[in-house]
């Protein structure tokens, strides 16, 4: 292949999709392209953006985590149902992290030690959590979100909402961790070739368990942000996030075991989804159309990678 073309094909599709959607929006609704409007749309995808940080970590060690939806639902239920009326904000944060960490540990144990299919494990865990929440709430919305959570979520610095800044900070932290830390090297080695990594003394199983625990903790953080973004608790909140997170990650150039896209590729993958929702709203495309678009995007990104990896 032509070297220029090869360089262009190596850029994660997220950047192209982002540019394309920006162009579409610029032509169709130029007045939407102001920082205040975009800030609000980007703020909506912050929970997704945070969840993606966990997803890209597990996908780089050739695993997957679809349990984020259940984790978000359970944490949202605990906060909004007033099961713990006395609990302070700090208590909620600790509870959320405990839940996320425990679910991540279970996932990691099953995937790395028991060698069970990660899709099956994390989907089953999600189903258990969703069933549990729906049973506890009898399928009805639990209650209101504490006011201070909404207030924190609404803070803005100029056109920049606080959640967006928080997301940027988390992404930069993950970028540093993967770039600089020994653990980041382990992740890369396990993703590249688990067997070779094991022979070179990399603790493969522990690396994968740790990736799942981190993904669980990150899902808990996403749950807190998601809860702050809504006024009333819900028994459906966050259920489609894990799958969107997988799509955004693939779009961002991170596929099972390979991480060319780094953390900023998936970051732009999430931004692409934010723009996609804007464009779809502008053109009046409703939910079925969104489902189809999500499916097509996942498929196209995966095909692109499949095609490239086949050609070496």
């Amino acid at each position: 292949m032509n070297p220029v073309l090869r360089r262009l094909a190596a850029v994660p599709p997220a950047y192209y999709v982002f540019a394309l959607l920006l162009l579409v929006l610029w032509i169709a609704r130029p007045n939407m392209l102001n920082p205040n409007v975009l800030g609000i749309f980007v703020r909506q995808v912050v929970p997704l953006g945070i969840l993606v940080l966990g997803q890209l970590l597990v996908m780089r060690v050739r695993s997957i985590d679809l349990s984020g939806g259940g984790v978000i639902l359970l944490i949202n239920y605990i906060i909004t149902s007033r099961t713990f009326p006395e609990a302070s904000g700090l208590m909620f944060i600790l509870m959320a992290l405990a839940i996320g960490g425990a679910v991540g540990l279970l996932n990691g144990y099953m995937v790395a030690k028991r060698r069970v299919s990660a899709v099956i494990v994390t989907l089953a865990v999600s189903i258990i959590l969703v069933g549990l929440v729906q049973f506890l709430s009898s399928g009805k919305p639990p209650g209101d979100v504490p006011k201070y959570m909404n207030e924190i979520f609404d803070i803005k610095y100029g056109p920049l909402p606080l959640p967006v800044l928080f997301w940027l900070g988390c992404t930069a932290l993950m970028w540093l961790a993967l770039q600089r830390s020994v653990y980041g090297r382990y992740v890369e080695a396990v993703g590249e070739n688990a067997e070779a990594a094991a022979f070179s003394g990399v603790p493969v199983e522990r690396t994968v368990v740790a990736a799942h625990v981190l993904a669980g903790l990150i899902a808990a953080v996403a749950a807190l942000v998601q809860t702050g973004s809504i006024a009333v608790g819900s028994v459906r909140v966050g259920l489609d996030l894990p799958i969107l997170a997988v799509a955004a990650t693939i779009l961002g150039g991170v596929v099972f075991g390979r991480g060319e896209g780094g953390v900023w590729g998936p970051f732009f993958g999430v931004l692409s989804f934010a723009l996609l929702f804007v464009v779809m709203t502008v053109f009046g495309i409703d939910d079925p159309g969104k489902l189809i678009a999500q499916g097509v995007i996942i498929l196209m990104a995966a095909i692109l990678y499949g095609w490239r990896s086949k050609r070496g």
């Binding site: 997957i64 969104k290 489902l291 189809i292 499916g295 996942i298 498929l299 990896s309």
Partner: peptide, 20 residues
């Protein structure tokens, strides 16, 4: 096209659900 079965059929699940 060398796509992992789980990803391929997951995408199909979404597309088909939308059409339905």
């Amino acid at each position: 096209l060398n796509v992992h079965p789980i990803i391929a059929t997951l995408a199909m699940q979404y597309i088909l659900l939308g059409i339905t």
